[in-house]
Amino acid sequence: MMSRVTCSHMSFQTAIRPAESVDIADIRRVARATWHTVYDDILGAETVEEHLKEGYTPPLLEQMIELDEVGLFVSTADDDVVAYMSCGMTDATGFGDLDLYVHPDYWGEGIGTELLHRGEQHLHDLSVRKIRDEVLAENEVGNAFYRAHFEKVGQRTAKVGGQEHPVNVYERRL
């Protein structure tokens, strides 16, 4: 999937492809920038750093690349990885989830929407009928994206970094 994106301050060629081992450092770079930008004020930089250490180890990312049932994709802008997404089935009743992160420098460029559509294709191939995702209520960027593409179906509380946080629950039918 290739497309040209032009915005007021830059023009670049975007492409989405399955992640490869050579992308691991770039996925970790995008994760670090995105997580710190979004979550430092909500969870604290220390909690964010802990999550990044646990959730983005090279062996874990390598495993995600190798598993067919997990879709791990990267989006590139002029061949630089600027976003990534992982998706898969979460339970046998046809629910799946999708985790999508775009580097803050590229927010609002449509890259997240392109990744969402690619993830939907992958999930559809896995017989997923509905995506269910959760976003911390304080994550304004994430909630804006989900409100544009999903239906909010509820709210719950989740413990993150030892603290309770309200979480919005969204669904999207495939």
Rank of each mutant, 00 (worst) to 15 (best):
T6N: 09
D23V: 04
R147S: 10
F150H: 05
V74P: 03
Y170S: 08
L100H: 04
E114G: 06
A33E: 11
D97F: 07
L116P: 05
L61I: 12
N139D: 12
D97S: 12
D79F: 07
G88Q: 11
H36M: 07
W35R: 03
S3W: 13
M2K: 14
V38S: 08
D125S: 15
L115I: 01
A77G: 06
D80K: 13
C87L: 05
R118Q: 14
K53V: 12
E46C: 05
A19L: 03
H117C: 10
K159P: 05
I27S: 04
T90F: 00
G161R: 07
T76V: 13
F12K: 03
I65F: 04
E114S: 13
Q121Y: 11
G110A: 05
T6K: 12
R4P: 00
T6W: 02
E120P: 02
A148L: 11
G88S: 13
G96T: 04
E50Q: 15
M2Q: 15
N139P: 00
H36W: 05
P58M: 08
R118W: 11
R28F: 02
P166W: 02
G161H: 00
Y170R: 01
P166M: 07
G110S: 04
G119C: 05
E20D: 10
Y39A: 02
H124D: 13
F95P: 03
N139Y: 02
L174V: 07
H165R: 06
M1D: 09
D68K: 14
S3F: 09
Q163T: 10
E138S: 12
E20L: 11
G108T: 07
I16G: 06
M10Y: 06
K159V: 15
W35V: 06
Y101F: 14
V38Q: 07
I111T: 00
T113W: 03
L52Q: 03
